[in-house]
Design a protein around this nucleic acid. Sequence first.
DNA 1: CAACCCATGTAATGGGTTACATGATTAC
DNA 2: GTAATCATGTAACCCATTACATGGGTTG
Lengths: 193, 193
Amino acid sequence: MTELSKPAYVVLGMIATGRRSGYAMSRTAKEATRHFWATSDGQIYPQLKNLSDDGFIEGERESQGGRERVVYSLTKKGRDALDEWLNSGAKAHYELRDEGLLRLFFAEELSVDQLRAQIDAMRTRHERAIEHLEDLRPRAGDMACAHLTLRYGLDLHAFSIDWYDRLDGELAEHDPDERAGDALRAINEVVSG
Amino acid sequence: MTELSKPAYVVLGMIATGRRSGYAMSRTAKEATRHFWATSDGQIYPQLKNLSDDGFIEGERESQGGRERVVYSLTKKGRDALDEWLNSGAKAHYELRDEGLLRLFFAEELSVDQLRAQIDAMRTRHERAIEHLEDLRPRAGDMACAHLTLRYGLDLHAFSIDWYDRLDGELAEHDPDERAGDALRAINEVVSG
DNA sequence: CAACCCATGTAATGGGTTACATGATTAC
DNA sequence: GTAATCATGTAACCCATTACATGGGTTG
């Protein structure tokens, strides 16, 4: 069985968990999975067509209260493909892209003061992320897995806040005009020594 | 001042922190920044040309021990652009892509047993990541900022391992054949209640 | 003398986002 | 009646990775 693309598995998973129209998938993608796996409309709708053509899913027109839409369901082939992916030991893609960390990496020549300002900005950013996830919580309804991944996100950002707080605490004891690289070198020796 | 692209700032930062040839930047990108900001050769080399043309950097041919290479340095313009980015309050790009979490999100109908297998796979994955980062540590040399971001990565993966361990501990007390969604619902009530 | 590292690039491909386009229905 | 939500799609663009291509130097 040739492997499907990531957006294809997203669509299959969405159908299996009750998001049966393209629009419903789009909403869930924005509200529930975006914080660990972004998927845009430009991927979802073409996928629905592809997976239909290839016999993984079947669409059926439905008019719910006058509104026209297409609701999809998994075929046997689609079910199997999804189950295989969900249970495969195949290494899962993992990637972090954090521009804040990139700035920290290049902060060697900044002053301690400037570095602390950056750290503060990162802290705020993680706080915003938590607020955002808290707002989404009510919409997870009774989906236990949605709550689970939401909780991971919340805990992850809380971890980061804590991490930056501790770093900031160390930096606070240094001269604001000291070179950031020098201050960090001193701190690292304490931590790892 | 129009904003530069992300790879452009990577290049400017690399030069400022002593990685002055394209090859040196490429190596650092692979060894030190990849785990939070991936950058490939296909971005670096064209950037060097662009930034040269636009007057942000200057290249100079140099033959070190018979080997030819081009070493770059920042112009005033380049310095300013880098400093502005390093100190800007502009919101930093942040993105996580975790296929494992995506699988968890769709795990509602798996058995507890199958879910635990997935969690175990994710745990292993984070352990591998830590091993990999440990291997990179010696190459960070005396760059304090490189050690800092490395430590963040190590701590982050350790957090994840811990998180999955605790979840697995809760699941271990459930019937292996129970529906994962049901087991998680019960656990969530305990955690949030 | 083979394998590996230094060193620089390009082209094809793939993946993904954004913006655009359309139109019906429902809530205020 | 107007704003928001439901609903579906497409095309242009941007970004990034991979693979390819080349060649000299160093190490075992």
